[in-house]
Design a protein around this nucleic acid. Sequence first.
DNA 1: GGTTCCTGCAAATTATTTTCTTGATACGTT
DNA 2: AACGTATCAAGAAAATAATTTGCAGGAACC
Lengths: 287, 287
Amino acid sequence: MDIFTTMQEERGRLSQSEIRIADIVLNDFEFAVNASIIELAGKADVSPPTVTRFCRRLGCESFSDFKVQLARTAYVGMRYLKPEPKSIAPADVAQDIITKAQNALFLLHRGLDVAAIERAANRLAGAEMIYAFGSGGNSSMIATELQNRLFRLGLRITASSDHSMQLMMAAAAKPTDVLIGSSFSGRNAELVRAFALAREAKVPTIALTQSESPVARAAEITLPVDLPEGDNIYRPTSTRIAYLAVVDILASLIAYRIQPQATVTLRRIKQQLVTHRDGDDRQLLGD
Amino acid sequence: MDIFTTMQEERGRLSQSEIRIADIVLNDFEFAVNASIIELAGKADVSPPTVTRFCRRLGCESFSDFKVQLARTAYVGMRYLKPEPKSIAPADVAQDIITKAQNALFLLHRGLDVAAIERAANRLAGAEMIYAFGSGGNSSMIATELQNRLFRLGLRITASSDHSMQLMMAAAAKPTDVLIGSSFSGRNAELVRAFALAREAKVPTIALTQSESPVARAAEITLPVDLPEGDNIYRPTSTRIAYLAVVDILASLIAYRIQPQATVTLRRIKQQLVTHRDGDDRQLLGD
DNA sequence: GGTTCCTGCAAATTATTTTCTTGATACGTT
DNA sequence: AACGTATCAAGAAAATAATTTGCAGGAACC
């Protein structure tokens, strides 16, 4: 658990002086990581021993341990308190977006249900046919991405963002197939219907969505992604990066599971791309 | 500049004892951030003053400053030395992927040409029509994403992953339009041709690609993304996350530039999504 | 042979922690 | 309600530990 979260959770149980210390650390991280115990104590109007006690209470060995903990999580963790970039100057906007993206990955990692992902990977690796569903800009991208990643491993997969097609495919699917669907909001009613249809026919279902949402409840295995999206309506992308990372993990696990087969297919695709281009091997698979 | 890079770059200029210290830090980061100067000195068989001098040489104020610097960049920076996950256990694979993704964002940020992005944003914000090109799984996703993000801001844009269409569109474009293309490898010959065609017709061109590549040279403005892809052929995704982040930055800057108009369009789209779903406002734009 | 630079020792300085004490608050008892 | 006791917070001072500086010996390189 990171020190910022701890500090916020423990806040209620801290004494007056300790709250002052916590606030200074929270508000001026740069100062806090660089300050000595005396400087920090001075700024919080407390004595150095109080700072030591504060660190201990938060589960740290010592003041320097506290600073290290702080510095470690801070790079990704600290700024989730600030919903907006410092200014709309390009450099600040860039930094804001990148920090938030890193943060989303950090939070994703913390909340990851590894066991569920493993189960999902096993299911997908053994499927005769995979149907990947998602609608709207974000989730359809995830469905496409799944297709993109898994067909290269030699799996049979089709992606669809069309609700009518989704329903028909779900109805046509067999118990040896797998249906995987994504919904950022968790309230894509059509996807829920497709899941219901599939489950009636005993088709395994996997959802990539918010936990405790209708979509999550409709699927057999849920890969939960729960992130605060932030307030800026212009910019809902960091969640997408987290979803992509989940797809990536899934695809990697599947690849490791079916390795011999996957290597051959990948090599063939790569070979084709390389000969099609200018013979330089450095390029990536798929563009 | 982060301390890990500095350490590797300065390695040649260090003395014997200092190299020993550097190696210990590089190899056992966990130990290094938690150790006192005496412990570190002991492990490297040098005296504490030598450690202090080592820190100074690396540009740090003091040993504790060094530790803080270390802890700060380490979260993202330390593991780019290890190309493979520790094991293929799901938890390790997940951690590996997430670390690499964070790392890609970190490196992207470091190499970002903010001025170029700003110029690109200005061009796009003022375009009468935008053509977004990209082929292959990765770049076509970027093109789609551009469309996805920019149409919401009220801009006119179409994405294409079809080479023939791209050429026709490039030929049909006017100097008041903008052509933006993505290529991870930088060697998409058809895209180069489309850029050439567009430039003949004085259509502004923007490339999202590796710097110094054919595609980069073909475009008027290049937004360079230069990342090592790592050796694992199964997993080329962290680069994609970096590209997505660039799109995100671009879209945000454009949004801030054309704010009044953008807010209205966004609100209208959101309104429609909300009424279409179950009236809960929490969902994201676009899924 | 001289210069430069590395290095460790010891001393000095600084930072941190421990111990001890005071003051405040809460709670129970008369 | 008043008093006493327990508990806890918090600072002062002392003790300890860590870090840095100054200096000098020694190695390597002109």
